[in-house]
Design a protein around this nucleic acid. Structure first.
Lengths: 189, 189, 189, 189
DNA sequence: AATGAATGAGAATTCATTCAT
DNA sequence: AATGAATGAATTCTCATTCAT
């Protein structure tokens, strides 16, 4: 089935070249024509590979999530203690600060369009849930409450970058969280 | 068609009736015509009071921020210890969970439109900064790092409501934060 | 009848302060609200004195034509020969180059709006015809053909200022016309 | 809805059918929707070929200028002396009197819109300058002052058609100019 | 597989004029 | 005499999607 391989390969290649364009203009603002032009294909061709703007974006998210988890695993591999894992995780985020803010905004932007148009997007929800589980594993957090705590803090910090570019560094906040968690867990045992 | 005597009073009344409409459809999605119809006025009249959609939204944010701060002050008045203040704050947020999620989404939505159109919105930034300071006062947090920590967690939790409607309760997370902060502060002295 | 006097006086004062505003934005582009604001009155008041934008403009033209003819007469008073009159006339125009271009554009702009809206504007036509006759008198041109010739040249030169700001000076062209006319008239007698 | 094969060819065809519509209502007054309807296409299609009303008009001017210069050349081909060239030129203009008035008004109308909106239109200026040079060549006028003189007269006469429909004939004025120029040039040598 | 012409409803915003006060 | 709130049709331009080639 050589044709199938080609088709799928080309589709992934197109996806790989999409992120920056989405990030620059936002999900709602970018037009399919712009995407097509940026990719060097016609709108017709774009629609040949992705049946709609929505589908295109869903596949993009699936793709980037896979990649990010692989990278995160590599970064956390050598960390042993909880504090070390926290530190590594926050360092990873800090290093790709811009990238993660773009992702977050893109996801929210996408969500806004859907919210009033159709039912909540099931595909994206699944992708996010699976990612959440793997992150909890990576960090070695058992208590679901603590997982929510840590991930919410991260989300909030990323979002904070929207306006307060100077206020808080990820590393600093990561260290703070590490200390607090350590003290808290020691005490509660 | 009686002539409304007090321009400013009527402007505020219109503002007061805008929030739900914005919240329901989002900043980008709602049209000025829809807003006008919802308010029972013509588009011309709407533009008589607000020179653009952007201005209208800015004034709306200013208005709701005032109101929210007043309410928050009332809620935290009787709280004494840090843990109590945390608890009261998170209870306040939990009670108005939906409302705060709407606000957050609206602000992000608005931000997305501007991001690629013009320079960052100065007016909104000022409103948010002022609010942030008063919240820090209310919570009695001195260390800027801790302020960022707490507010980021709150933002993250609110945003978490977008997908994970069941996962975490604000009260629970507020209690957790209260404990962690108390232990942490005791230990660091 | 003190009221009448006041009314008419005030009307003329308003007129006198209108020209620059019209000139700056053009007849079509300027709004009645802008005119009102520029004059420091309400739109209602403006409509109290001028029943429509069209009427306002017609009266403005009538006013400025009166003034210009008086000034022109003063300038040409001392000129004796044809060449002298030509020279004086072109010097007068050159001195008020900007002003006359503004007038011309304003008249054309006004004309364009009307052209397809209603029948040709009778009032303006009369004003222009009367002015034309007085100018012919002033210049001392008897042959209607020559009057058309000279006035067309002037109009064309003024219009030329639209794009070719540097190309031709009025004085130069006036001198040229003076010479040509003199030679021509001498020869044809 | 067959697919038009040659984009550029179809674009020119659309242009060719635009002039009368612009002429009838004026640049400002005609709407893109009207133009689209008049051409039998959707507004979307119109914008597919011309990215804005401004662009559309610029291309229209470019087109008509090309055509007019070709026609003018054909008309003046056989003329030998200066007086003959003048006569031929004015006859050409007289024959297409209405057409040239429409052009002039259109250009002025267009100019008015731009004047207060943006910087002066470079494209139109270039088109006009090039045309001016070729006309000077055609008429065989060397002295720049005389070129300005003749072209201004023509512009003024065309503009005169706005109000004074009866007053002056182009042929008559052309003959007059021919005589004056001949006498003047003879004398000045 | 690939193209790009075609669609048309819908967006934000404007403005001369009216009229209750 | 003076005000300014109210109107609403009309403007330019956009864009996801389709489909003949």
């Amino acid at each position: 089935m050589p044709k199938i391989v080609d088709h799928d390969l080309y589709r992934k290649e197109l996806l790989g070249r999409c992120f920056d364009m989405f990030a620059e203009k936002g999900y709602a603002a970018i037009t399919m024509r712009e995407i097509a032009q940026g990719l060097g294909v016609s709108t017709g061709t774009l629609y040949h590979y992705f049946s709609s703007k929505e589908t295109l974006f869903e596949q993009l998210v699936e793709e980037w999530t896979q990649q990010d988890l692989l990278k995160a695993e590599a970064e956390l591999e050598s960390a042993q203690t909880l504090a070390e894992r926290m530190e590594a995780a926050f360092r990873f985020i800090a290093t790709n600060e811009d990238y993660f803010l773009k992702q977050t905004l893109l996801l929210i932007d996408f969500h806004q369009q859907q919210e009033h148009t159709a039912s909540h997007n099931e595909i994206l929800k699944q992708v996010c849930d699976r990612a959440r589980d793997r992150v909890a594993d990576l960090l070695g957090l058992k208590d679901p409450k603590l997982v929510v705590f840590v991930l919410s803090l991260i989300d909030g910090l990323i979002l904070g970058r929207l306006y307060n570019e100077e206020v808080a560094s990820f590393e600093e906040q990561g260290a703070l969280l590490g200390k607090m968690l350590t003290v808290y867990l020691e005490q509660s045992t």
